[in-house]
């Protein structure tokens, strides 16, 4: 098989991987913030279930969660699983898993802002919303950026787990080509794709960090 044809096939798969990647970020970041706020709730009925959810997401393998979500409609309602469902199952599993991790990062960031900041805002008469959006959140973002970078780099590599439910993204394709061709070229190329993309992610995040380095906390 020609290298150009391998490249072309992998590129198609890479598009699918990127689909998982950006959709997961799009939904799990805001969901993670909601989960973090719920995790810090004073009401045990809100906080309790959220603590359990986070521990479940962090305590079991993502691959298991993926397969679980995929078979859920069949197991619960006996529905036949349509081929299109694979994609949604991947997105749902990734979003709920990553939201849990992001939530804990957000929580640590929010709790690391000194209480004096809240008190100064309170005395100046800012509303709770103004305090959070204008004073706390910008400082949280600066504090958590390195941890978020770590997490979103891991997510790039985790997209390959979608092969577990036979969703055809780049890794699934690379594995198929390797099995057919009996050489590792496709895996090496796939590895390069992941590496180059993550290099870009790290570079972009580094620029963000530099942009926020105009002040110290």
């Amino acid at each position: 098989m020609e290298i150009s044809s391998i490249l072309l096939q992998l590129l198609g798969g890479f598009g699918k991987s990127m689909g998982i990647y950006f959709l997961t970020l799009l939904f799990s970041l805001p969901l993670g913030m909601l989960v973090a706020l719920g995790r810090m709730s004073k009401k045990p009925l809100v906080r309790g279930p959220i603590i359990f959810y986070i521990s479940l997401m962090r305590g079991t393998p993502l691959m298991l969660q993926l397969i679980f979500v995929y078979y859920m409609p069949y197991a619960l309602f006996g529905w036949t699983l349509s081929p299109g469902w694979r994609f949604y199952a991947v997105i749902i599993a990734f979003v709920i898993n990553y939201a849990a991790y992001f939530a804990e990062i957000f929580r640590s960031g929010i709790q690391s802002v000194p209480t004096g900041q809240y008190e100064a805002a309170d005395v100046l008469g800012y509303s709770r919303r103004q305090t959070f959006m204008g004073i706390i959140l910008p400082q949280v973002i600066k504090r958590i950026l390195p941890s978020v970078t770590n997490e979103i780099i891991t997510l790039v590599k985790d997209t390959s787990l979608a092969f577990a439910i036979a969703y055809v993204e780049m890794f699934t394709i690379a594995k198929q080509i390797v099995a057919r061709e009996s050489n590792l070229v496709a895996l090496i190329v796939a590895g390069l794709f992941y590496y180059v993309f993550n290099y870009a992610v790290a570079a972009v995040m580094n620029r963000f960090e530099k942009k926020l380095s105009y002040y110290k906390i």
Binding site: P114, G116, Q117, E119, A120, V123, L124, G125, Y126, Q130, G134, I135, P138, Q139, K142, Y215, K216, I217
Partner: peptide
């Protein structure tokens, strides 16, 4: 108004922004 022992200025805002933001927004 209250002046704190350890200032509690908003670190992400410059001096002028620290002073004018609350009169404008509150």
């Amino acid at each position: 108004g209250l002046v704190f022992q350890n200032f509690n200025l908003f670190p992400h805002r410059n001096v002028l922004q620290n002073i004018i933001d609350a009169p404008i927004k509150v």
